[in-house]
Simulated scan of single mutants.
Amino acid sequence: MKEHESVIFSKDHKFLEGLRWHDGHLWASDFFTKSVKRLASDGSSFETIAEIAGAPSGLGFLDDGSILVVSQADATIRRLTTGGSDSLYADFSSYAGGIGNDMIVTNSGHAYVGNFGFALGAEDPRPTHLVHVDPTGIVESVGGDVLFPNGMAITPDSVLLLAETWNHRITAFDIVDDGSLANQRVWAQLDESLHPDDIALDTDGGVWFGNALTLAEDSGFYRVIEGGEITDKVPVPGAWAVSCTFGGNSLDTLYMSCNTTTLDEFHEGHSSARITTANVGRRGAPSV
């Protein structure tokens, strides 16, 4: 396994999720400040784009320039326009077994969003389902049972890859023409010490994931290929490795959110966060 060093890009945040590279900038959701942030190109500052009362999580972008944001507490998706308006885009609370979580939005406007499925730290894990929101706003449950559906990526041949945090695996689905999901299967089964959070796909077909929920030496961002072989790691001991995305003009920089907290502190809203970067010798796959 090849290891890579990282450097600090931005610091003094609280709990960062949903890293996305869009329109020449890195974007992020900060749970505990309830803000959607757009960072300066050098990481020295950020702009608060919106405050989400229900705490923001997954981010996505529509071709009209508007931003989709998962509101965790009420399991909805908010739509932010370039003019500054904030409106309800979709309500998936009737399909969610827990608070809203990560999301991916395709270039054609299909959104896929996860939810915790249970009260983290207070209930035993139980399965839930992904939710699909089509470009007209129709909401439906898709795919089979999944356990804590988290980060997602879509391959060029229309396969949705999903991190199942509590099943320690990356799961694959075929995307059908209408946006529904079929042929659920295990893409990579991981060691039980690994809890994959957000994921990013590189052009060689590898998936990078953060190993969340640990501050120990196994904390870091890992690269796995289909079948389960781990090929690379960016260590971040002392922080939860949560979200990652490729960015930069050539999508050749891996951006990573590193949140220093414990499960008890997380429930109390206490955390400190930084974003680090690494050159891992690969490029991110373009959005589809």
Rank of each mutant, 00 (worst) to 15 (best):
V7D: 10
I8Y: 14
F9I: 02
S10F: 03
S10H: 10
K14N: 13
H22K: 02
D23N: 12
D23Q: 08
H25T: 01
A28W: 07
S29K: 13
S29Q: 15
D30W: 06
F31G: 02
K34L: 01
V36D: 15
S41G: 03
S44Q: 11
S45H: 07
T48L: 04
A50Q: 13
E51S: 05
G58L: 04
L59M: 12
F61Q: 08
L68I: 06
L68Y: 09
T81S: 15
L88R: 10
Y89I: 00
D91W: 06
D91N: 15
I99E: 13
D102K: 03
D102W: 02
N107K: 06
G109M: 11
N115Q: 06
N115C: 05
G121C: 12
E123W: 14
R126P: 00
T128Y: 11
H129C: 04
D134H: 07
P135R: 15
I138L: 12
V142R: 07
G143F: 07
G143I: 05
F148V: 02
P149S: 14
P156S: 15
S158I: 03
L160I: 03
A163W: 07
T165I: 00
N167K: 09
T171Q: 11
F173V: 03
V176D: 14
D177P: 00
A182M: 03
Q184V: 05
L190Q: 04
L190V: 01
I199R: 14
A200V: 13
T203E: 12
D204I: 01
G205I: 03
F209T: 07
F209N: 08
G210L: 08
L213H: 12
L213N: 08
E217D: 07
S219Y: 07
I230A: 13
I230S: 13
T231L: 10
T231E: 13
K233C: 14
P237R: 14
V242C: 08
C244T: 13
G247Q: 06
Y255P: 00
N259D: 09
H267V: 08
G269Q: 04
H270C: 04
S272K: 10
A273M: 12
I275L: 08
T277P: 00
N279W: 04
V280P: 01
G281F: 03
S287I: 02
S287E: 09
V288W: 04
